[in-house]
Design a protein around this nucleic acid. Structure first.
Length: 559
DNA sequence: GCCGTTTTCGGCCCGACTGTTTTCAGTCG
């Protein structure tokens, strides 16, 4: 059982304790343990084995026992007891933005709200405002946020859908009746969120594959006679499996990959493609270069005509890994561990960008801590210079952009960093004009080198602040500031739809993992996936620069 | 339930923001 699965049970226990009126400090202990486990490098189960789990901060003897029990059978006594004492739908109610454990509990006890449907009905019937402390505005927000939650619940983040579907695809490939199987649909196009996963399999025996899928999926349903079967993976991700004879695989792969807009535009000019075994045949027949699947959105990919498509960025093109956190702020690995993890992955430079002083919750660095960290970066670089002169650590900071658009340190502190990533973390409730001005002012600051997660969105969790992307991008281009494409699968922000605007203006895009733990450096994969979707090429990507070129970029464009 | 200690209990991340109040509770990051 993975750390994150164990952490989920512990976090749910924390919520249940508060919902049922338990000791809030005890609840927080569960919450803290869950977070510790989520960020833990090595396997909690392994640590149970060698008795070192209690060395992890926030995990004592009792918590370690709970973890052992969860690792064994997926849950533990306290969790089961609490879960059976609340209505099953109540956990959904608590997912509504603005409803924490306290308000959810009152809605449950005082209005008998036990599901999203109940909540929506109570708000529509004007019952919510009858509770002390709940006004008209709160009731209105509840209605809107229930609708938003329902929309979110219908979709899956790219990385989650991919991870859930991959084992299914691997197993499918080992099936005797299957000649070939591939991802297709929105997943293959690297959409940031998808409604369902799609897989295409080539087979001469569709019925045998259907039987296999029926046994493998929850709630399987056949569609279009025997050419499609739908069902749900264990993780809850809906999957649609298309079956096609090997001779027609290529054309079917093209069509199921979509997007519908791409296929329609294709057929309007080139006609419907004949059956092909290989997808290349579809494009050859139309005298088109093979258009990479990520680009098939009818957003200019046909303008390529006879030209070969752009050589899109690959993970191998990345030489640097900028914007990472350490235990100096809210990361879970030391600066040295983080740098070494980057080195192990073959990067030639690493940027440490812990949080700045005003972000207290994330233990943002005081000017004194900045100085201390600078000294450690210098020591690390001396060490690396001996062992691996081709590797270097850069001292950066993720500086908060304050409400007025200024950065979070005086210039004498800002002067000591190798580079500054400027990001907004507070005060999201802005008009588009306010947000845009705040960002543009930060971009105009000569110390800013990268604009961090430009909209602050969390996919399927929170809309970002509204931003006039064009103005912000143009300001970045003008001031030599790179735009971050934050590779955290919950962010993928800059949105891919704006990447071509940025690159066409000459602004660089920096694909940053925003890693709060060593293994999360691997988030870069999703940043690359979405960067490709925005037509990003290596020369347009800041951290695809060599160590030498990156150093030069810092020197040339710096304050 | 964890942790640290002036060590076996007492306190527990902290400030901003929102919507409700009329001084604050709840939520969020």
């Amino acid at each position: 059982m993975s750390n994150s699965e164990i952490a989920r049970v512990l976090q749910e226990t924390a919520d249940l304790l508060e919902l049922t009126g338990g000791n809030p400090h005890r609840a927080r202990a569960f919450s803290r343990a869950a977070r510790s486990l989520g960020n833990l490098q090595d396997s909690a189960v392994d640590r149970l084995g060698d008795g070192t789990l209690t060395d992890v901060s926030g995990i004592g003897e009792a918590m370690a026992d709970h973890v052992a029990e969860i690792a064994g059978d997926g849950s533990f006594d306290l969790h089961d007891e609490l879960l059976s004492s609340v209505p099953p739908g109540l956990m959904d109610v608590m997912q509504v933005k603005g409803l924490g454990t306290k308000r959810t509990r009152r809605l449950w006890i005082e209005l008998d709200v036990t599901s999203l449907d109940d909540l929506e009905q109570a708000a529509k019937n004007d019952q919510v405002t009858t509770l002390d402390g709940f006004g008209a505005k709160t009731q209105q927000n509840i209605l809107e946020n229930v609708r938003q939650l329902r929309r979110y619940n219908e979709r899956w983040r790219l990385a989650e859908a991919w991870a859930a579907t991959e084992p299914f695809l691997q197993d499918l490939r080992t099936e005797g009746a299957v000649e070939r199987a591939e991802f297709t649909g929105a997943l293959r196009r690297h959409r940031e969120t998808v409604e369902y996963a799609e897989v295409l399999a080539a087979t001469e025996q569709p019925n045998a594959v259907q039987d296999w899928a029926r046994a493998r999926l929850k709630d399987p349903t056949a569609r279009n006679s025997s050419s499609q079967i739908e069902g749900t993976l264990e993780e809850g991700v809906p999957v649609r499996l298309h079956l096609i004879s090997p001779g027609q695989f290529g054309t079917a792969w093209w069509r199921t990959t979509g997007s519908p807009a791409h296929c329609t535009a294709f057929e309007d000019t080139c006609g419907a493609p004949a059956p092909h075994a290989r997808e290349e045949g579809v494009f050859a027949e139309a005298n088109l270069p093979v258009i990479p699947p990520e680009l098939r959105e009818d957003r200019g990919e046909f303008d390529l005509a006879g030209d070969s498509p752009p050589a899109l960025l690959t993970q191998e093109d990345l030489h640097g890994c900028l914007h990472n956190h350490s235990t100096y702020s809210d990361g879970s690995n030391s600066l040295r561990e983080m740098a070494e993890a980057a080195q192990d992955r073959g990067f030639s430079y690493f940027g440490i960008c812990d949080h700045s002083q005003s972000l207290r919750i994330a233990e943002g660095l005081s000017p004194e801590e900045v100085q201390r960290q600078r000294a450690e970066v210098d020591r690390l670089n001396e060490d690396f210079a001996e062992k691996d002169p081709q590797f270097r650590v850069f001292h950066g900071i993720e500086s908060d952009i304050l409400r007025d658009g200024s950065l979070d340190y005086d210039t004498d502190v800002l002067d000591t960093f190798d580079f500054v990533v400027a990001s907004i973390h507070t005060g999201f409730n802005m008009t588009e004009e306010e947000a845009t001005q705040r960002l543009v002012r930060a971009v105009e600051n000569p110390y800013t080198r990268i604009l961090g997660h430009p909209t602050g969105r969390l996919l399927l969790q929170r809309e970002g602040y509204p931003v006039d992307h064009a103005r912000v991008i143009d300001a970045c281009a003008e001031h030599g500031v790179a735009l971050e494409l934050n590779a955290n699968p919950y962010r993928l922000d800059l949105d891919w739809r704006w990447i071509r605007r940025a690159t066409s203006q000459g602004a660089l895009v920096s694909i940053n993992p925003d890693a709060h733990a060593a293994q999360k450096i691997d988030y870069l994969r999703w940043g690359v996936a979405v960067g490709r979707k925005g037509w990003l090429t290596p020369d347009q990507c800041l951290n695809a620069k060599s160590l030498e070129d990156f150093t030069q970029w810092l020197d040339e464009e710096g304050p």
